[in-house]
Computed example of a mutant assay.
Amino acid sequence: MRTVNIHEAKTHLSRLIDEAMKGGEGFVIAKAGRPMVRVVPMTASEPRQTRRLGFLTGYVRVPDDFDRMGGETVGELFEGEA
């Protein structure tokens, strides 16, 4: 993706938009070399967020009785017995 500075973007905005529409790829506007915004054609597909199933495997352990944890406390709260 092409990067242009703010001054160039202000000066050539119409041309940059036309190029983005023809090529299907947008451009990045930077300030002092630091990317600030991305301009993409409305016809461009939305970037999909990668789903990372299992990325905590080995770090998190769900107890076997997870669905029953705190059952007595919850029951007492609902029944009004403390």
Rank of each mutant, 00 (worst) to 15 (best):
51 R>V: 11
75 G>R: 14
32 A>P: 00
67 D>C: 05
24 G>N: 03
47 P>I: 10
42 M>A: 15
78 F>C: 08
72 E>Y: 01
49 Q>D: 05
6 I>T: 11
22 K>H: 10
74 V>W: 04
80 G>F: 01
39 V>R: 04
24 G>F: 01
72 E>D: 14
76 E>H: 07
80 G>M: 08
40 V>R: 12
17 I>M: 10
19 E>A: 05
26 G>S: 09
33 G>W: 00
76 E>A: 14
19 E>P: 00
37 V>N: 05
46 E>W: 01
54 G>Y: 00
69 M>N: 06
80 G>V: 08
40 V>M: 06
19 E>S: 03
41 P>Y: 03
19 E>C: 01
73 T>M: 12
48 R>G: 02
26 G>N: 09
24 G>T: 02
43 T>M: 07
78 F>Q: 13
61 R>E: 13
71 G>Q: 12
5 N>V: 03
52 R>D: 06
44 A>H: 04
68 R>L: 10
59 Y>G: 02
17 I>Q: 08
22 K>E: 15
77 L>E: 08
2 R>C: 02
45 S>C: 02
5 N>F: 00
65 D>A: 15
58 G>R: 06
71 G>I: 09
1 M>A: 12
49 Q>V: 15
15 R>M: 05
60 V>Y: 00
39 V>W: 04
24 G>I: 11
19 E>N: 06
24 G>K: 07
79 E>Y: 01
17 I>A: 13
49 Q>T: 11
71 G>D: 13
81 E>C: 03
68 R>D: 13
50 T>I: 12
16 L>M: 07
42 M>D: 08
48 R>T: 13
15 R>W: 02
66 F>Q: 10
37 V>Q: 03
12 H>F: 10
55 F>V: 15
72 E>P: 01
32 A>W: 01
5 N>Y: 01
49 Q>N: 05
14 S>L: 10
31 K>I: 10
42 M>G: 03
52 R>C: 06
68 R>T: 15
62 V>D: 01
43 T>W: 03
40 V>Y: 01
46 E>I: 12
69 M>W: 06
21 M>R: 15
68 R>K: 14
40 V>Q: 09
38 R>F: 05
44 A>G: 02
51 R>M: 08
37 V>K: 06
73 T>E: 15
45 S>W: 00
82 A>Q: 10
78 F>S: 04
37 V>R: 05
1 M>F: 09
50 T>R: 14
64 D>Y: 03
12 H>T: 06
68 R>N: 12
41 P>L: 09
75 G>F: 03
65 D>T: 14
51 R>I: 10
76 E>F: 03
65 D>S: 14
73 T>I: 14
31 K>T: 04
64 D>E: 15
67 D>Y: 11
17 I>C: 11
8 E>H: 09
51 R>S: 08
78 F>W: 10
70 G>Q: 06
45 S>V: 11
66 F>I: 15
31 K>R: 13
